[in-house]
Nucleic acid binder design. Structure first.
Length: 202
DNA sequence: GCGACGATACTA
DNA sequence: AGTATCGTCGCT
């Protein structure tokens, strides 16, 4: 578990799968309107960059995805389904637009959040007041809106396929704290209802 | 301009 | 199984 900015930088400079695994247990610190809220990351997904059919950059570089090409620690926030924001962190080395999607976190005591307030990528962003205005900002800004802190390391990290995607559906790139009750979906969840909606034909 | 679609989550 | 609900992007 890293403690210094340099150690976090090193963590995020790894390939996405390794970075995603090692972010489990780290604490997100959100500063907004003079207040701070902290939550321990318990579920992540790795997106590998241009070689990953499920990654946003797979179909080319666009203005929206520009933060993914920034240095490790650059935030990429996008809006989906007309309702939800999703928080990602750019990782891996220069020229590789890998990222880690933060799917769930445990609010720390004193955060004022319900235990399940950060269960799922959309709810996490709502609870931490994260929207596209944070896209392009950086985790390592001093006193910035979103930073990393040391947290309790997980005892066991479990792996499963990523949730809610159709391309590269079987790739084992979802990581979660196997002892946390706050993961966004059952480890062996089948086809989600959302997937059924996306598959529906006109 | 237009339209298809999506790294969701809740309810039933 | 239904659905809220809109930004992004490729195409015209």
């Amino acid at each position: 578990m890293p403690a210094s900015p340099d150690a976090f930088r090193a963590l995020l400079s790894q390939p996405a799968a390794e970075a995603a695994r090692r972010l489990i247990g780290c604490v997100l610190l959100r500063r907004v309107r003079g207040r701070s809220v902290a939550a321990r990351i318990v579920e992540t997904e790795a997106y590998l960059g241009a070689a990953d059919p499920a990654a946003h950059v797979y179909r080319g570089r666009t203005p929206r995805t520009e933060p993914l090409f920034g240095p490790p620690g650059t935030l990429y926030v996008y809006f989906v389904y007309g309702m939800h924001h999703c928080l990602n962190v750019a990782v891996d080395g220069p020229g590789v637009a890998g990222c880690v999607l933060i799917r769930a976190a445990e609010p720390l005591p004193g955060s004022g959040l319900a235990k399940d307030a950060c269960r799922g990528p959309g709810k996490l962003c709502r609870a931490l007041a994260i929207d596209t205005r944070l896209s392009g900002r950086h985790l390592f800004e001093r006193g910035g809106p979103l930073t990393l802190r040391k947290g309790r390391p997980p005892r066991r990290v479990a792996v499963s396929p990523r949730i809610g995607i159709r391309q590269a559906a079987g790739w084992p790139l979802r990581f979660y704290d196997a002892d946390s009750p706050v993961v966004s979906a059952a480890p062996r969840a089948g086809i989600s209802s959302g997937a059924a909606q996306r598959r529906r034909k006109p």
